[in-house]
């Protein structure tokens, strides 16, 4: 048996750096707790659902069911997530459901860091570096897409109607993305 003292603990790239701060423009940026996340690929003809994850939503949208969510990023690509403790379970259930179809399930729980930016001006702050139209009409609740934030790639998710966005970014870009969002909040200010 491994000595208890040798068990590795997790360290996030933003530990210490990403304390929720109240920023100008009423915007809040924070890091979300770790979650299990997988990149799921299934070719055309995917079932409507795999282990509780919706697969039949239109491209660039997200469906949340209980603690599990699936964002369809392309015709055969989903980013799925659920509670960290369920990582093993999710993998087994999905694999079991899709056993008979060509597919790929790859854990990206550690690859991605999740940030959240919220507040009435969150979309405008995101638009400091994201070139998409984030208005309610163009990017309503239930939207999710891969896009850009400044010089890094992100997956941008708006699950609900409230002005709160999840930014999934690769871990080595997370300090940049976090710094960019904080700076974007300062950029919201106008002359008093």
């Amino acid at each position: 048996m491994l000595d208890d003292s040798l068990y590795a603990r997790r360290v996030s790239p933003l530990d210490g750096a990403a304390k929720p701060a109240s920023l100008p423009g009423g915007v809040t940026v924070r890091q979300l707790k770790p979650e299990a996340r997988f990149s799921l690929r299934v070719k055309a003809g995917a079932p409507a659902d795999a282990a509780g994850f919706a697969l039949d939503q239109k491209i660039n949208s997200i469906v949340v069911r209980g603690g599990r969510w699936s964002a369809r990023l392309g015709p055969d690509e989903w980013l799925i997530g659920g509670p960290e403790a369920d990582a093993q379970l999710i993998a087994e259930e999905v694999e079991a459901t899709l056993r008979d179809r060509p597919h790929s399930l790859v854990s990206v729980s550690h690859r991605n860091v999740s940030l959240e930016i919220s507040g009435a001006n969150a979309a405008i702050a995101l638009n400091a570096g994201c070139p998409l139209d984030l208005s309610d009409a163009a990017f309503p609740a239930g939207s999710a897409t891969r896009t850009l934030l400044g010089k890094c790639e992100i997956v941008l998710i708006r699950a609900g109607a409230e002005p709160s966005y999840r930014v999934e970014v690769w871990r080595s870009f997370s300090t940049y993305a976090h710094g960019f969002l904080v700076e974007a909040a300062f950029g919201l200010q106008n002359a008093a």
Binding site: P13, A128, G150, K151, S172, T175, E183
Partner: peptide, 16 residues
Amino acid sequence: VGPARDALFDPIRTTP
């Protein structure tokens, strides 16, 4: 240039 200066000039990728 906008915000792309100093730490935000380019992403600096670092390992765990």
